[in-house]
Amino acid sequence: MTSAARDAQIVLATRNAGKVREFRALLAGAPALGDLDLDVAVVDAATAGCAEVPETGVTFEENALLKAHAVAAETGLPAVADDSGLAVEVLGGAPGIFSARWAGADATDARNLELLLEQLADIAPAHRGAAFVCAAALVLPDGREVTRLGRLEGTLLTAPRGDGGFGYDPILRPVGETRSCAELTMEEKNAISHRGQAFAALRDEIVEVLQGARER
């Protein structure tokens, strides 16, 4: 573990800054944590000095557990990981677990999004149903694990809208919304998002871990 992470109490097994921001924002609403400095207590895998973990699972849940177990073993700290992606109905659930590398192993978010829109260019609005799916996992250093799932149903737009979020957020309009996920505030997005649902379902266990770390 790097010197910058010595005070960490839990490691978020990702290098994605957007996920780290969302995760800290979700935990910030837990009164039980009081004045805990989440910027210090919750660090990402890069800050903790962890190696990247290959996502070799065939489901979101398998990949989340692979990452969380690897980081917990490497750091000796509780680890939280998620695996998430976009499931498009007319593509049989793809990109799915390949969402982050849909346009290739080194693809950017912009290129992934561009390719998907090209592939769906002739699909009518009535058939552009899709959902963000997330599996979140908490793994303790002793090997105990908890997993939770979240799902956000919506419709794919024909062009990106909004500057917030990341990934495919600019092209998914949630059911009941007129805005894309990228046009929502972070608070609005966390309240309905697949990741927000999955992490919220884990929050009691995570808060318990953080409280225990404070008391030691």
Results as ranks from 00 to 15, higher is better:
Gly93Trp: 02
Thr158Pro: 13
Gly57Arg: 14
Gly129Ser: 13
Gly104Ile: 04
Leu184Asn: 04
Gly212Phe: 06
Ala5Tyr: 04
Lys67Cys: 08
Leu86Asp: 00
Phe60Leu: 01
Val43Ala: 09
His69Asp: 12
Phe98Asn: 06
Leu156His: 06
Gly162Ser: 08
Leu115Cys: 12
Glu215Lys: 12
Phe60Glu: 00
Cys50Phe: 00
Gly129His: 12
Leu38Asp: 01
Val71Ala: 05
Ile192Asn: 06
Asp106Tyr: 03
Asp106Met: 08
Leu86Ala: 02
Glu215Asp: 14
Glu208Tyr: 07
Val209Ser: 10
Leu38Ala: 05
Lys19Gln: 03
Ala198Thr: 03
Ala17Ile: 11
Asp204Ala: 15
Leu66Phe: 11
Ala87Thr: 01
Glu74Leu: 13
Ser193His: 03
Phe166His: 10
Asn112Ser: 07
Ala68Glu: 01
Gly150Asp: 01
Val71His: 04
Thr2Gly: 08
Arg15Tyr: 02
Gly164Tyr: 02
Leu156Glu: 01
Gln119Ser: 12
Gly34Pro: 12
Arg161Trp: 05
Phe132His: 01
Asp109Arg: 05
Ala110His: 02
Thr185His: 04
Leu36Ile: 09
Ile97Val: 15
Val20Arg: 07
Ala213Pro: 04
Glu22Asn: 09
Gln211Ala: 15
Glu145Phe: 07
Gly29Tyr: 12
Val88Pro: 00
Leu140Gly: 09
Leu33Lys: 07
Arg216Trp: 08
Pro141Ile: 11
Ala135Tyr: 00
Gly104Met: 05
Arg214Gly: 11
Asp169Arg: 04
Ser3Lys: 11
Lys189Asp: 12
Gln211Ser: 15
Phe166Lys: 13
Ala8Val: 02
Ala94Phe: 03
Lys189Pro: 00
Ala107Val: 05
Leu113Glu: 14
Leu86Glu: 00
Leu172Tyr: 14
Asp169Ile: 08
Ile206Cys: 12
Leu26Lys: 01
Glu183Tyr: 02
Phe199Ser: 06
Ser180Arg: 08
Thr158Cys: 11
Ala105His: 07
Gly93Phe: 08
